[in-house]
Computed example of a mutant assay.
Amino acid sequence: MADHLKTLSDKDFQALTDARVREPARFRQALPSRRRRPLVGEDGRMLLLAADHTARGKLAIGSDPMAASDRHSLLDRLLTGLADPRVDGVLGSADILEELALLGALDGRLAIGTMNRGGIVGAHWELDDRVTAYDVEHVLSLGLDGGKTLLRIEPTDRGVPRTLEMVARITTALADAGTMALIEPLPYRTRPDGGVELDPSEDALIRTVAIASGLGSSSAHTWLKIPASTNPARVAAATTCPILLLGGDAGRDHDRVFDGWERALEVHNIRGLVPGRALLYPQALSVNDAVDRAASLVHPSVVPTLEETPS
């Protein structure tokens, strides 16, 4: 993993804990009081930093099983990414979004709240993706710009219908409020050892995209978050919903990942990226360089002017 020079001081980081102890109301006030912005700009595109993995116990990056376990490092990497004005915002759980808002880093940026984080990585119930983070009521009352749901479909899992019903209900409620419903539909399969893994079949991905597009009583505010595939146009043809591509763990093969994103972003309804580990924990690049490359793909007409990191 590339070295990362910290810019968030120990003093400012420790102040977050002090605020939790002495002034916890500040965390509740930070998000609704921040300066808001439209969901998309003139180019109709979006670059989000995904920071909701830790809420599902997903801390591993590459060969390091605990790489994302240091909160100071994670926040610092997010601040580094947000210093680029082409980064539109962050997808995260309440703890991370509140901390970033308290640091002033989400003023004029999007805050998308992750919702169903119950499928803990490696647990026997991993595919039981219940709501354990934001719910619809708090996405709306805290002034978030959208809510994200995870929809993993494994054909033999009897719990999938419950997840489908839940995601449909959330999608309807967010649409009724005129708020972005970001669905992450992923095809899964069970391994011989009983564990689960992402199904790499493009046909399976197309099927989940079609299913997710039809969830809820309105798709007016539905966006989809999916992996980049070998034939992105074929996958995107299953829907007119706008699509953001996730990043995953790029390892040292960043050129392959960025090249795939570049090809995919030529498809009309693929409107941006929502990478996490690929930009925040790059193995062969600095965070600055990884974010710059991604931002130049999503917002090629915007000239970057780096902002000062909030203190």
Results as ranks from 00 to 15, higher is better:
221 H>P: 09
259 D>F: 02
179 T>S: 11
189 R>L: 14
206 I>H: 06
251 G>R: 02
155 P>R: 02
193 D>L: 09
153 I>Q: 09
153 I>K: 00
217 S>V: 05
183 I>V: 03
231 N>W: 14
186 L>F: 07
179 T>N: 07
163 T>A: 11
199 D>M: 00
208 T>I: 03
258 F>Q: 07
159 G>I: 06
203 D>A: 14
201 S>P: 04
168 A>S: 11
183 I>H: 00
177 A>R: 10
232 P>H: 10
259 D>K: 09
212 A>F: 08
164 L>H: 01
255 D>C: 03
175 A>V: 01
205 L>W: 04
177 A>T: 11
160 V>M: 14
209 V>N: 07
247 G>T: 11
236 A>I: 05
233 A>L: 09
224 L>I: 01
159 G>E: 10
256 R>C: 04
190 T>F: 12
157 D>H: 10
182 L>S: 00
164 L>W: 02
216 G>C: 04
216 G>R: 07
173 A>E: 10
170 I>R: 06
153 I>G: 05
164 L>K: 03
233 A>V: 08
202 E>V: 06
239 T>W: 07
220 A>Y: 11
217 S>F: 14
208 T>Y: 06
211 I>Y: 02
248 G>L: 12
160 V>L: 10
188 Y>N: 07
227 P>E: 08
251 G>Q: 10
159 G>C: 12
192 P>K: 05
229 S>P: 04
252 R>D: 15
177 A>C: 12
159 G>N: 12
155 P>K: 03
205 L>R: 00
231 N>R: 15
249 D>E: 14
188 Y>F: 13
160 V>S: 13
178 G>M: 03
213 S>G: 12
228 A>H: 12
228 A>N: 13
169 R>H: 13
199 D>Q: 02
195 G>S: 15
154 E>D: 13
155 P>D: 01
212 A>G: 04
196 V>W: 08
182 L>F: 06
191 R>A: 15
153 I>P: 07
187 P>S: 02
204 A>C: 07
232 P>K: 12
202 E>D: 08
168 A>H: 00
204 A>M: 11
188 Y>S: 09
173 A>F: 01
219 S>G: 08
233 A>M: 13
192 P>E: 07
155 P>Y: 07
257 V>A: 10
223 W>K: 05
236 A>H: 13
161 P>N: 04
224 L>C: 04
195 G>H: 07
171 T>H: 02
203 D>G: 09
157 D>E: 15
156 T>N: 10
252 R>A: 15
247 G>K: 01
245 L>E: 03
198 L>C: 01
258 F>E: 11
181 A>G: 08
233 A>Q: 14
203 D>W: 08
217 S>I: 11
222 T>K: 11
229 S>D: 08
184 E>I: 03
173 A>M: 10
165 E>N: 04
233 A>G: 13
219 S>A: 14
184 E>Y: 01
206 I>Q: 05
224 L>T: 00
215 L>S: 04
200 P>Y: 05
231 N>S: 15
233 A>C: 06
156 T>P: 10
253 D>F: 03
247 G>F: 03
236 A>L: 14
201 S>F: 00
240 T>Q: 14
246 L>N: 10
174 L>Y: 01
